[in-house]
Amino acid sequence: MTTRTPLSAGPDGLLPDLTPDTLRVDPLERADTIPSSWYTDARLGPFEQRAVFRPSWQVVGHVSLVANAGDYVCATVAGEPIIVVRNADGEIRAFYNVCRHRGGPLAMDDHGACRMLQCRYHGWTYTLDGALRGVPRFDRTELFDRADFALVPVAVDVWEGLVWVCVGEPALPLAVTLDGIAERIAPQDLTGVRFHSRVEYAVACDWKVYVDNFLEGYHLPLVHPELCKTLDVSAYVTETFEWHSLQHSPIRETPDGGVYGEGDAFYYFVFPNVMLNILPGRLQTNVVLPDGPGRCRVLFDFFYADGTAPDQIAGDLAFSDAVQQEDIEICEAVQRGLASRGYDRGRFSVECEAGVHHFQALLKRAVADGIWNTGDPPAAPPGLRPA
């Protein structure tokens, strides 16, 4: 077993196993997986929020949820509470879901509608553009200017009917991050689906375990035997792009049409934690959120084309839940294995795990950039030092 020395980097002073060796990106055929400590050391979590999640685009919902002025959607992005709202001019705006008085929430539901944004703590009110409008019982407060206390805005963009936000400085425009997806799935049109429901899963594994699991079909025969009857696993292909990857499979033809119908299944992953499961007449968005050491939450939003039969939706939801329960069981077992003294780093199947390697390479790049941006980096691995 290799002996490792934890690295003290930057003001955190607590980053484990971040060395030139572990940050180096080798070709798939020669690469090791990331160290087990990246999944198990609780001290890495706050650094990941800052270095990995803040500069990334995160999907928060569909435009159908903010169709009218005053409609809003709430989300947690990079650990931050966010509210997205459509204003009176029809524009979609995003703000921190935080009142500028003493940090109270403007909304506490996943989504809803309002005429103005009002703090649920002390009643300060804001216009749908974020300007402070009403300040109860503040007449005697001196040197107070409402203009200084507008809501803090967040970058927001829309792609194919999906609303995305970024709480930091976006590494790239959203259109660049998602380049090529809409053309690849044509003639399917994601703008034509409507939100149906959300299912949330609490999973006792690090968020990266769940992402790794999503990114390969290697485990399908053992973990998902029923899914293997639906997908043509022999034609399962993984493709990688700059900031996203695709797992693609034809859907098996069955006499009754099966739970997925006829066509193709597109499983897209957008770095670092967003999944787009695009199937005939439907869309699932899965967002994997860190939830403390060794835990994550997975938010499944289900969207369907108009006219989808209720029994078809019910069957789809039940099948999806069965698959997720299988994934949860294996991911939680993997988390226990990663914490064992019997494991440190593994290798990749060139045939089956290109998506996992691609994700871990992007993760290494984000972590290396984060070290350089926080003060006291190690020697930069080749190809990873920021320009």
Rank of each mutant, 00 (worst) to 15 (best):
D321S: 13
V223M: 03
Y260C: 01
V350N: 05
L279H: 06
S8M: 14
A150G: 15
W124T: 07
H101E: 02
A182K: 02
Y72I: 11
P105G: 01
T76K: 02
L143T: 15
Q312V: 15
Y72P: 04
D179T: 10
Y72Q: 07
G257S: 05
W243Q: 08
G315D: 11
R198T: 15
G355I: 14
R198L: 12
H244K: 03
A107Y: 03
V63F: 03
F269Q: 08
Y267S: 08
S249W: 11
R198Y: 03
V165D: 04
D376C: 10
A333N: 05
S37F: 12
G103I: 08
V85R: 00
D157K: 06
A309F: 07
F195L: 01
P16R: 11
A9T: 14
L151G: 01
E160Y: 08
Q325S: 10
L222C: 02
I185F: 10
H244T: 09
G103Q: 05
R120H: 13
A354M: 07
E353I: 15
P46K: 06
A309Q: 10
P225L: 06
L143E: 14
L44N: 01
F47C: 04
R252W: 10
L174D: 10
A94S: 09
V223D: 05
V73A: 12
V73K: 02
A368D: 14
D17M: 10
F241H: 13
L162H: 07
F149V: 12
P35L: 05
F302C: 01
L279A: 03
Q360T: 07
P16H: 12
P255L: 15
T2Y: 07
D17V: 06
T127V: 07
V350M: 04
A150F: 10
R54N: 09
